[in-house]
């Protein structure tokens, strides 16, 4: 069965390390649905890369093993095997006529988004949440007139133990 997996990769921040990861995926025919990478700031010269991929269990097993085999990779976690929270963010520029402004603000409010830029003819709106939530807001804004959409990849974190 094909499943979506969110994999978190801790890696050493060396030149070319990202192309080692993406080259591995393209060279072996694995699929990347989204990818997000940034220094963690928790430790010097260490970055965290979150990628979403899908595949049968055997493929996912190969992906995690192959990632781990890269010399610059510190740790690989298949986050979706655990309880986790995931977020992505989108910036959406929508056409804002006097007649539609109130409607836009209502929709943004429902999704707990924020208006981050205003011009006489448009709003830029920020929303964060799971991929589904971000998509739902975009779908609702679409009839109003979307001019531009920028989405990040997913980032994810395992939930802490609930035990005291």
């Amino acid at each position: 069965m094909k499943h979506k997996h969110t994999i978190s990769v801790l890696l050493q921040n060396k030149p070319g390390v990202l192309s080692r990861v993406t080259g591995l995926f393209s060279g072996r025919g694995f699929n990347i649905e989204s990818l997000s990478v940034s220094p963690t700031l928790q430790e010097k010269d260490v970055s965290c890369l979150t990628l979403v991929t899908s595949g049968e269990d055997a493929i996912i097993e190969q992906i995690t093993k192959q990632l781990h085999k890269l010399i610059d990779v510190i740790k690989v976690t298949d986050i979706s095997e655990k309880e986790y929270v995931e977020r992505e963010m989108a910036l959406v520029r929508v056409k804002a006529e006097p007649s539609t402004r109130a409607e836009i603000l209502r929709i943004v409010d429902i999704f707990r988004g924020r208006v981050v830029d205003v011009s006489p003819k448009s709003f830029a709106v920020e929303v964060t949440g799971t991929g589904d939530k971000v998509k739902a807001m975009i779908d609702l804004l679409r009839p109003v007139g979307i001019q531009e959409i920028i989405r990040t990849g997913t980032i994810a974190m395992t939930r802490a133990s609930k035990k005291y």
Partner: peptide, 10 residues
């Protein structure tokens, strides 16, 4: 380094 990335161990 780019050319040999997929055919070297490192």
């Amino acid at each position: 380094v780019g050319i040999t990335r997929p055919c070297t161990k490192h």
